[in-house]
Design a protein around this nucleic acid. Structure first.
Length: 424
RNA sequence: GGAGAGGUGGCCGAGUGGUUGAAGGCAGCCGCCUGCUAAGCGGUUGUCUCGAGAAAUCGGGACCCAGGGUUCGAAUCCCUGCCUCUCCGCCA
């Protein structure tokens, strides 16, 4: 959420930001409603002030056994007036909030202006896509031959876009999860294991609601949401808190399963592990002081990149353009890993600075030493990494002509083996 | 799932419907005092918001889990929800 004061004072900036994102929201209409709200607020506060003084006076009179019926009658009408203005004020408030919650974050200056993913800009590349003496297979073909992923049975159990990991496939996910968590904790992130079902306030805090309800799985009784990423519960750890300056920056890492409806992506990546309703992910989350957040974004991205480097997986870093940028983000780097089976780079991590957008929604503040008042922290997060897609990348990049898959050096200790051969 | 208890400031804890933003204590901060430390004494310490001001600050409003209601007036009474705790049942 943006600051309504900021919107009033920087109407042009906000309007152009909305335009760059190809959204259509009337800022002037919002400002008009805000003016109306302030009028009502001033009006009601005068009346409340009057009520407070007179009610006190009534108390004094009653204590002295004197007549207060005149004042009581007057206050009766004042109270009614307050009640009716309050109702209008509440409506106006709700109206403003409902608009505010749908206004996206303002892209950072360094974010390229563009329409869609084709306008994203490549920042750097690491590694070279390997060459094969044979036709490299898709990961689902590799997995089928090795009998380590069973999509047919998964769809019997749950439906399309689910996977059943078997034997070394299941082990590979577990190895990656441990490898990533160890990697991240060694870099100063505190490991947490949060709830994966969360309430509405939590989903609103990070920006999934109210706009993206259709992307989420929801339970009926009680009404809870399945998290689409650990960003949601982990960022909300500090919702409605005022943090001491001294504990910042705070780094967290969490492994969780993630759940996405994938509404609107029918026909996309229907085969394989790339796009699932349920997938595993290790996430990185930071709470930092505003002046450091862009340095922290570079560091967070580097932390995620290091995982790919240790796994020896070629990748590139792209900065998302304004049209592809997520609703809550001010700037995002995507890490895209090379997939020989598709002969292209595919997203495996997304690292974003939300500035104070989520912090304002979730009321996550901090107090500076020796200074009065509070400020919003800046929040960041990134995948470190999406485990399912890492499995895909390993299978495809490390596949051998005989159908086996070599396990990257860094993972062998966790995997307990150097290669996945048929069934073992 | 059944029965009961409770949710007050950074923490503990009081609070007959009428100077209660909230006693008291602890912790914190600022002074004073003490050779140092401890103790002691005095003062001070929440958040959000509207208005005035260049600012320090000043004035108003709101906030005692959340949302409604009763009342001239609610932390205090009523309703709903959420959460915590105890006992029974069930259960990984």
């Amino acid at each position: 959420m943006l600051d309504i004061k900021f919107i009033r004072e920087n109407r042009k900036t906000v309007e152009s930001a909305i335009k760059k994102r190809h959204e259509d929201i009337s800022v002037s209409a919002l400002i008009d409603i805000e003016e109306k709200r302030l009028d009502l607020l001033r009006e009601i506060e005068v009346l409340r002030s009057r009520r407070n003084t007179v009610s006190e006076e009534i108390g004094r009179l009653k204590k002295a056994k004197q007549d207060a019926s005149g004042l009581i009658a007057e206050m009766k009408s004042v109270s009614e007036k307050i009640k009716s203005i309050n109702a209008r004020l509440k409506d106006t408030d709700n109206h403003i909030t409902s608009i505010m919650l749908t206004i996206p974050n303002i892209p950072h200056n360094s974010v390229p202006v563009g329409k869609d993913e084709y306008d994203n800009a490549e920042i750097r590349k690491w590694g070279t896509p390997g060459t094969f003496d044979f036709e490299p297979l898709n990961h689902w073909d590799i997995a089928e031959k090795l009998d380590i992923i069973d999509f047919d049975r998964a769809s019997k159990i749950a439906g399309a876009r689910f996977a059943l990991m078997k034997g070394p496939g299941a082990r590979l996910e577990r190895a990656l999860m441990n490898f990533m968590l160890d990697h991240n904790t060694a870099r100063g992130y505190r490991e947490v294991s949060p709830p994966v079902l969360v309430n509405r306030d939590t989903m609103t805090g990070t920006g999934q609601l109210p706009k993206f309800e259709a992307d989420l799985f929801r339970t009926v009784d009680p009404e809870l949401y399945l998290i689409p990423t650990a960003e949601v519960p982990v960022t909300n750890i500090h919702r409605n808190e005022i943090l001491d300056e001294a504990i910042l920056p705070l780094y967290y890492t969490a492994y969780t399963p993630c759940f996405r409806r994938e509404a609107g992506s029918y026909g996309k990546d229907t085969r394989g592990l790339i796009r699932q309703h349920q997938f595993n992910k290790v996430e990185l989350v930071k709470f930092v002081k505003p002046e450091n957040s862009y340095d922290e974004l570079e560091k967070l991205t580097a932390d995620a990149e290091d995982i790919l480097q240790q796994l020896g997986l070629p990748y590139r870093v792209v900065v998302l353009c304004t049209g592809d940028l997520g609703f809550s983000a001010a700037k995002t780097y995507d890490l895209e890993v090379w997939l020989p089976g598709q002969q292209r780079y595919r997203e495996i991590s997304s690292c974003s600075n939300f500035e104070d957008f989520q912090a304002r929604r979730a009321k996550i503040r901090f107090r500076r030493e020796g200074k009065k008042g509070t400020e919003f922290v800046h929040t960041l997060n990134g995948s470190g990494l999406a485990i399912g897609r890492t499995v895909v990348a390993i299978l495809e990049n490390y596949q051998q002509e005989d159908g086996s898959v070599i396990i990257p050096e860094a993972l062998r200790h966790y995997m307990g083996t150097e290669a996945i051969k048929n069934g073992i």
